[in-house]
Design a protein around this nucleic acid. Sequence first.
RNA 1: GCGUGGAUCGCAUAGCCAGGUAGUGCGCCGGCCUUGAAAGCCGGUGUCGAACGACUCGGGGGUUCGAAUCCCUCUCCACGCGCCA
Length: 429
Amino acid sequence: MLDIALFRDAPERIRADHDRRGLPHDAIDEVIRLDGAWRDLLKATDVLRAERNQAARAIGAAKKAGDQEEMQRVLAEVASIGERITSMEKEVDEALAARDAVRMSIPNLLHEAVPSGADESGNTVHSVHGEKPTFSFEPRTHNDLIEMNRWVDLERAAKVAGSRFYYLKGDLARMEMALSAYAVDFLCERGYTFVQPPVMMNRTAYEGVTDLGDFETVMYGIEPDGYYMTATSEHPLTAMYMGETVPEEHLPLRLVGVSDCFRREVGAHGQSDRGIWRVHQFRKVEQIVISDAEGSWDLHEELLQNCIDLWDALGLHYEVVNICTGDMGTVASRKYDLEAWLPGAKAYKEVVSCSNCTDYQANRLQIRTGVPGHANQPIAHTLNSTAVATSRALVAIMEQNQLEDGRVRVPDVLQPYMGGQGVLESCAF
RNA sequence: GCGUGGAUCGCAUAGCCAGGUAGUGCGCCGGCCUUGAAAGCCGGUGUCGAACGACUCGGGGGUUCGAAUCCCUCUCCACGCGCCA
């Protein structure tokens, strides 16, 4: 959510941003109009309340003085004012909610380096890493590999849970744990603090970190308790400091979280999404940074560099993509994706997303930086980046490291986490 | 799950029983004083607002002319009991 002061003092900055995105200005004008209406209503209500407060004080004074007559006179005078205030207050609340409903739909201001483009075809390649692997045989898709090795049981998961769930079995399940542990260790060595967050959040906290539409299409709701399963540890980790001032001596706050992620994936269908590429539950190691405004762009580059070093260490071939205006979404000001090469699918596909949300999330969450206790503390900046989403990283490793017989070579850096095992063997059942 | 006690300004605390301008200490900011600092003294120190003013005592609702204070409800915390990996 953008600072309301931008709408009042510098709406031309928001308009210029909408021009880059190819969006009309209607919503901006609507916010400005609704803000004016809210402020007028609030002012009128304040006048009424001032009247009531004055009367209440007069009654108190008359009572103390023992002047029954004066007390009764003032009482009669303000008899109906309470009801009027109550109904005005309701209007004020509605006016503010109406303003913010539209304000919430307005996306973050884009960084100037974001390339222009209408959709994902406008994304530009930032850099290419590793060598495209070559095979002396026709490489299989991960779907073939998990099936022939019995590493994933989709049918029984569908029986027990539903479609897009899976049992991860044997050596592949073991490598999943190795990946998580390796990525966490990797970031801890770089000064990130390991945090295991709750995987359910309440509605208030969740509204601070995501689009309202996500409640319909992404998150699972837990009734009767009113919790939501987290779609990524970005959400509980970013909301962690909601309503607080992070002391400047702790900045930037570098966190590495690991959690299972739960996504409804409403509307997602298709052959390309078979297997474990797009599923309702997967584990993800996530980088989160809370910083001040000055440091956030350097930290965005740091997050990307961590991903590059981590994925290089896994020995995989991938591209870093600079996301364009038309593919950006609401919250990020700038975003890089890592797209790994899948030899079986013969395509680069998204495995990492690295965003600087600037003050857009922190504004809604009211996360500030500075010295606690001071007035008007600046709003923090929040950044997030995948380190590894293990289900997708497993797909990339399986397809790039596959052997002719269908087994898979374990990346060197993961072998110490698997008792020195060098190759994934198939499951007996 | 049951019971008891709590939640007040950045922190700590008073006010609640008995409704009538949210007080005090610490911290922080500014001023006086000083070569400079400390101490001391004075003022300020939540939100909206140009200002008058309004709002703010965990959240929501109610009673009342008026609620931190009374009533209802929810959340969280502490302690005890019960249950439990």
